[in-house]
Design a protein around this nucleic acid. Structure first.
Lengths: 233, 233
DNA sequence: AAGGCGAAATGACAAATATCAATGAGCCGC
DNA sequence: GCGGCTCATTGATATTTGTCATTTCGCCTT
């Protein structure tokens, strides 16, 4: 058993047969026999908040299915500016680029305690050579990644600071949900293309006006209807 | 011969065998026999500047390979705001989403006279069922689309107005090139998340300071090294 | 050549955001 | 419990960008 870094915890070989998110993962369409026929080199790993799953420029050796938690994908400009280009959650697939490129283009860092299944890229390639449905599933994943990137552009990089923050809160809260866990103001700014101070001010203003409350640290309750109304003004 | 709209011009059935950009298109990896074995329903179409190739929400029936020209992909927010999320050029593939979704998620409009090859999605699906290398090629395309979306976020939606404009100019100019054709200030703003006026002012300022010149309308010459230096300050 | 049209450029001003600096709150180790 | 951290918040101010109105320019029509 090999430990790649001192922060992560290898939790063992994944039991895909009894996977609780089986219906949502990359292999959802495959018959059990198909991927049982190989020795499955799929490991479960738990990353504590703040730990790096992989860094930009590293050899891309694996894809990851997120079982729980929250991951930020950061991209750097030549001049050092950085921007968070995506946030990934439960059932999202991390590191798809490994299928095509030799190095990871982003840095992936866990913002909360995050559990993943690690799928070695060679293994996925092998499976995909004989299983057309896996390709279908994978194209769906590429498409999902692309539309979330587009969403990033239109929702989180367009309009006033307040609109951007509100859109992100609603995205984090998800459908019908009113609560969401948030992260540092610095990351909030990096997601929205704003400075830390502006992000902080805007959050504070929303709190003062009663649109959100913070019953415990970094955990927020959102008045969803009011926030949605804010977007229209 | 069916004409879908009054603006576009059907130029005939494509002669893929002698395609001048054959090495760069989706079918690059396929043997001629393979895709000659079907009747090839690939048409060439020329769109004049300003014409719509497809609109968001329309049934996604085809993919398009760009042979020449420039296409903007626009996305709309519920509140009516619009944002250009990508610009496509020669050899780029348009409407990949048709492989996975039933409707186009974007509106695609030609900014210059644009020649395309139209690939019916059913045909591409059919080919892809038997040709693994087509899948490889297609994953490469998804990946390319995704990294240009990421680039949109980090380069064109981050930093000051001047930095954004300069990054776009350098992107349009391409490697080593010094000249580029540009479009309206309104579209420039929609690409960069700026108002038309700010886009105009910034361009005017760059002209006054000698970083760019406009020998003929909408055609610019860029002082590439100076522009690159601007990005660092 | 004159007039009309639309896009670009510019000006004046308001609003939003960045920047720099200071303060305050929570957390940790001692 | 007491410094000594880090990070959120806030304040004061400078800069940038948006907004609205006006002018200029190029092009097209007549």
């Amino acid at each position: 058993m090999k430990r790649v870094s001192s922060t992560e915890a290898w939790t063992g070989v994944a039991d895909c047969r009894n996977c609780s998110i089986r219906a949502s993962v990359l292999f959802a369409g495959l018959k059990e026999e198909v991927f049982d026929s190989f020795h499955r080199p799929i490991g479960q790993i738990t990353y504590p908040a703040g730990s790096t799953i992989y860094s930009a420029g590293e050899p891309a050796t694996a894809l990851f299915t997120l079982r729980s938690g929250l991951v930020k994908m950061t991209q750097y400009l030549p001049d050092g500016t950085q921007r968070i280009v995506r946030l990934l959650r439960k059932t999202d697939l991390l590191g798809l680029e490994a299928m095509v490129e030799s190095d990871y283009p982003h840095t992936a860092i866990a913002l909360q305690t995050t559990e993943v299944c690690r799928l070695p890229v060679d293994y996925v390639r092998l499976l995909s050579q004989t299983n057309i449905q896996l390709f279908q599933e994978m194209m769906g994943r590429w498409n999902k990644a692309l539309s979330s990137a587009d969403r990033w552009i239109t929702e989180f990089s367009t309009g006033s600071a307040r609109h951007r923050v509100v859109r992100l809160l609603l995205w984090l809260a998800g459908d019908g949900e009113e609560s969401c866990d948030l992260f540092s103001r610095e990351d909030l700014g990096a997601v929205l293309g704003l400075t830390t101070e502006t992000a902080s001010r805007t959050m504070a203003e929303l709190k003062r006006k009663g649109f959100i409350s913070e019953p415990r640290l970094n955990h927020f309750l959102c008045d969803v209807p009011s926030l949605q109304r804010l977007l229209k003004s």
